[in-house]
Amino acid sequence: MKHGSALLLVAIAAGALALVPLLAPPFYANLLVPFYGYAIALLGFNLLFGYSGLLSFGHALFLGLGAYTAAVVAGVWGIKEFEVALLAAALAGLIVALPLGWLAVRYRGIFFGMLTLAYGMLAHAVLFKFYHLTGGDSGMRVPRMHLLGLEFAAYNKIELLAGPFYYYCLTLCALAAFLMWRIVRSPFGLHLRSLRDNAQKAEYLGVRVHQFRLAAFAISGIYGAVGGTILGFRTGLADPELVYWTHSGHLVFMTVLGGFSSFLGPVIGALALTLLQDQLQSLTQYWRLVLGAILALVVIFLPRGLAGLAIDVSLLLGRRSAPSTASTTETA
């Protein structure tokens, strides 16, 4: 797909998403708010997985970290500015990611995956057991916060989420995607892709493999925590389930569904799963079974995910239109 065409498609998609609160019932805008949280987290997750070759099975830890940070900033410290919660979450994500990543990036493949899974399980146990600090299984309340200094007192929670907060998240997601786009196209991004493909060769070309993996881990931690802040704000709660390993599996599911070899694949996966899960839940109590079957089909028949399918279809349409255009020109 050509660069211009891809940008046009992204602009159209963003425009369509911007119209949701105006054209659709508030339910749908409210439904899409967590999508933005997941989309931001998955942009970071895919820097680690798609671009660095490290599959984390404990990445939900950072989403939980973001939500709990928002709970502490707004609920415990009484700072009601959402931007402060975002910055605090990003900082917490960095501070936690550095020591965890320092140890984890020495390993690859299943060992890295198991180590990150262990991190997630440890975090879950800490949040679950340290009741006096974390609220245990009840979690911590994330109070309503101000957006860009505005209280939006006239809005109830649903109106706030489906209106101002929706656009806030859309803008934040666009900014996060732009930033990540710059990162993956930078010299740093090239070195990440080189070590993903062949770490030994990369080292002989001067790529600092451990340092670069650690940097990718830290950036993905920051993105995860920022995404988690949105999830916490939306539900008004930070609870241990956010860091549980099944939630990490959810992130992997979204990434595989959308396609980890494309920049926007995980974002497409997050959108698809958010909508699909909502529809399936309303249709059957066996929705998890159906989701599992869909994942199996995607892995078997669409290894490059929905984004790969979209690229293949657009290439096919491009090939078909090219000869017809040529023949039209010749006739003319």
Partner: peptide
């Protein structure tokens, strides 16, 4: 080789090292 990198990207990997640009996170290559 780096199977999923192009020829230009493979050579650029070393050139980035040589020119000391490896930590440029936001400059478009």
């Amino acid at each position: 080789i780096f199977p999923e990198l192009t020829v230009a990207e493979t050579i650029a990997t070393a050139a980035v090292t040589r020119q000391g640009k490896r930590w440029r996170l936001l400059s478009p290559l």
